[in-house]
Simulated assay, not measured.
Amino acid sequence: MQNYTSSNTTVTGYLSRPLNEKILLVQVLVGIFLYVNSLMIFTFLKKEAFRTDTRYVLFAQTLFMDSFLMLLTDLALIGQYFQVPIPWVPCCVLCVIMGWLSVGTPLTLVAMCLERYVAICMPLRHADISSPNNRRRGLVVIWAVSMLIPMFTLVSFLSLAPPAFLLTYVVCSIEMMQLRTWVSTARQTLLLVYFALMCSAIVFTYIAILRAARTASSDSKKSTHKGLRTVILHTFQLLLCLSQFVCPFVEMAILRIDFMLFINVRYSNFIVFYIALRCLSPLIYGLRDEKFYVVLKRYASFAIATSS
């Protein structure tokens, strides 16, 4: 059984570390991708046709979630690097929101693939299935399902931690909320179950669209093959999400050995699985989609001309 992992460190007692090129690199990359995502969100909001199309709405949701998650994880990374302790209550809120967003992105990717399946394999029913009411219900389901694992982590933490424990300070990370080994194991098991279900949905979608591509007429083959390529790219994103789910296993093992090594490993995972992963959605939809790319290019050119 694992002991409480909290720290009684005070705010004035944290270890000060010099700013180095790794942290500066992260800030530059986060700034660039937040700017690109913000430009795409602005493009989505300014065009009514995008706001009423289910696939663009789902795309915009990934942009919102990825941007917010990137910002929060960057703040958490800076706090961990400089060993800045904060009270437990804001730490819990931060971890729950980050967990919520990190699960929400792959679920939205699955929804985007299913939307392409309906559009290609059931074109006559696409308008009815992708109606505004169904779209709102789908978004609510994504947000609700995404919240299950973070809520499990929060409830288990509050049930295990004594009241005085919440008054202490801690260098915030999701691992600090896992006060027992079984909590960590259960959380990772739930994440793997999520991924297995999402992979099953992706495989079903891919096979169905592949069959549709073989039987499609010459007029619809182009759009069918484009939808198939999009599903393949989403599958690649989902595989990266699997690696992101596996990362906590490695990080927890390293945390028990050396805390500073844990910080360095988490830094590398942040670069690969948060920044790199979160820049794929703009490339897949924002630049590959012809309609969105034309509008985005116009707003980007205007922004550059205004800044200069």
Score class of each variant (00 low, 15 high):
residue 150 P to Y: 09
residue 36 V to G: 01
residue 51 R to I: 03
residue 198 M to N: 11
residue 184 S to C: 14
residue 209 I to C: 01
residue 249 F to E: 07
residue 175 E to K: 13
residue 76 A to H: 05
residue 84 V to S: 10
residue 102 S to M: 07
residue 284 I to G: 04
residue 272 V to L: 13
residue 109 L to K: 04
residue 214 R to Q: 12
residue 238 L to C: 02
residue 146 S to R: 06
residue 263 I to R: 04
residue 277 L to Y: 15
residue 53 D to P: 11
residue 300 A to P: 02
residue 24 L to H: 05
residue 13 G to Y: 01
residue 241 C to N: 13
residue 177 M to Y: 10
residue 234 H to G: 08
residue 240 L to Y: 05
residue 82 F to Q: 00
residue 61 Q to K: 13
residue 247 C to M: 14
residue 279 C to G: 10
residue 228 L to N: 07
residue 21 E to Y: 11
residue 87 P to G: 01
residue 60 A to M: 13
residue 144 A to T: 05
residue 132 P to K: 01
residue 74 D to N: 14
residue 157 F to D: 01
residue 219 D to P: 14
residue 124 L to M: 14
residue 236 F to A: 07
residue 207 I to W: 13
residue 274 Y to Q: 15
residue 282 P to W: 02
residue 120 I to C: 07
residue 75 L to S: 11
residue 128 D to M: 09
residue 134 N to L: 03
residue 226 K to T: 15
residue 302 F to L: 14
residue 64 F to W: 09
residue 264 N to D: 07
residue 15 L to W: 06
residue 43 T to R: 02
residue 202 I to C: 08
residue 284 I to T: 06
residue 279 C to N: 13
residue 273 F to T: 10
residue 65 M to C: 15
residue 263 I to A: 06
residue 127 A to T: 13
residue 121 C to V: 07
residue 237 Q to A: 05
residue 302 F to I: 15
residue 114 L to A: 08
residue 67 S to M: 01
residue 175 E to C: 12
residue 119 A to M: 11
residue 247 C to P: 13
residue 25 L to T: 10
residue 223 S to P: 11
residue 46 K to T: 00
residue 89 V to Q: 08
residue 258 D to Y: 02
residue 122 M to L: 12
residue 100 W to C: 08
residue 192 L to M: 04
residue 162 P to C: 01
residue 116 R to G: 05
residue 280 L to T: 10
residue 135 R to K: 08
residue 187 R to P: 07
residue 272 V to C: 15
residue 284 I to H: 05
residue 143 W to H: 13
residue 224 T to L: 11
residue 208 A to V: 08
residue 246 V to H: 04
residue 242 L to Q: 03
residue 69 L to W: 05
residue 207 I to S: 12
residue 85 P to K: 01
residue 300 A to W: 03
residue 46 K to I: 00
residue 296 L to E: 03
residue 40 M to A: 00
residue 283 L to S: 14
residue 182 W to P: 07
residue 273 F to P: 05
residue 244 Q to G: 12
residue 104 G to F: 03
residue 252 M to Q: 14
residue 284 I to R: 04
residue 108 T to M: 02
residue 142 I to Q: 02
residue 227 G to L: 01
residue 33 F to W: 04
residue 130 S to Q: 06
residue 273 F to R: 08
residue 102 S to A: 10
residue 261 L to H: 03
residue 219 D to W: 13
residue 180 R to F: 14
residue 71 L to H: 05
residue 93 V to R: 11
residue 93 V to C: 11
residue 250 V to C: 06
residue 124 L to R: 11
residue 96 V to I: 12
residue 265 V to L: 09
residue 221 K to H: 06
residue 245 F to H: 09
residue 7 S to L: 07
residue 26 V to I: 02
residue 191 L to Q: 11
residue 80 Q to M: 03
residue 228 L to C: 06
residue 195 F to H: 09
residue 77 L to W: 00
residue 157 F to N: 00
residue 217 S to G: 14
residue 60 A to Q: 12
residue 5 T to P: 05
